[in-house]
């Protein structure tokens, strides 16, 4: 109980208070805290990414070993992981004079080739695919036909049309205030900012309240179910 619950809550309190204090005492040693602790945060986050990778390997191997549905595709995941890993960590396809680490961006490294010819087509196409699903979602939103949905779609349409040459072409003969590119700019700068700002203020207040709950040990959900 002490090691599993009270120590973690104490760590949150001490670290949270230390980082809060440095905002109000911007002198040594507190001013150095933010610089180094942010670095520590990034380093621990990398270990979390590594944990994710190892967990992926564990799950995929378990899928193959237990021959679950579509287990053959788990081999594809593992081979893809191993190939990219080899180019990332071993000196394979790294030009002679390049130091390991710099090979990520080096002109002729195989890691960079993998990024541009395998990772980019996969990620770009995966996200491009969403364009079709967004189109179908907007069609469904159109069918709801209430004021709010109409407002959302009209604002979206004006913004999209106003930012491409077609929009300017369609309304080029109308008075300036009725031209799509001007209407979209007004919507973007004023009503859109008003709504977005209210959301930002709401998020800000929520963030402060939640952070204080964590620091003061009121909120302990991050410990998981069996606290």
């Amino acid at each position: 109980m002490f090691w599993k619950t009270q120590i973690p809550v104490a760590i949150v309190f001490v670290v949270g208070m230390l980082t809060l204090v440095q905002w109000f005492i911007p002198h040594r040693p507190f001013d150095q805290l933010q610089v180094h602790m942010t670095q520590w945060f990034d380093i621990i986050a990398v270990f979390a990414v590594i944990l994710g990778g190892l967990n992926l390997l564990k799950l995929q191997f378990s899928k193959i070993i237990n021959r679950k549905k579509d287990w053959q595709y788990a081999i594809v995941t593992l081979v893809g992981f191993a190939v990219m890993f080899s180019y990332g960590f071993f000196r394979i396809g790294v030009p002679g004079e390049i130091v390991m680490g710099d090979h990520l961006q080096a002109e002729n490294s195989h890691f960079r080739w993998m990024f541009f010819n395998i990772f980019t087509p996969l990620s770009a196409t995966m996200f491009a695919l969403l364009a079709f699903f967004v189109a179908s979602a907007s069609y469904r939103a159109f069918r709801i036909r209430n004021t709010e949905a109409t407002l959302l779609l009209v604002a979206g349409m004006i913004l999209m049309l106003g930012r491409v040459p077609l929009g300017a072409l369609l309304t080029k003969n109308l008075p300036s205030f009725m031209q799509l590119q001007n209407i979209q700019e007004w919507i973007y700068l004023w009503p859109n900012v008003a709504g977005a700002r209210a959301i930002m203020i709401g998020i800000g207040l929520g963030m402060v309240a939640t952070s204080l709950r964590f620091i003061l040990g009121i909120e302990k959900s991050f410990l998981g179910g069996d606290e």
Partner: peptide, 17 residues
């Protein structure tokens, strides 16, 4: 499935270095 494997390794390598 290839995307999952390649991107996991890509991010691990990038963040490691």
């Amino acid at each position: 499935h290839l995307f999952v494997g390649v991107s996991a390794s890509y991010w691990i390598a990038t963040y490691y270095w």
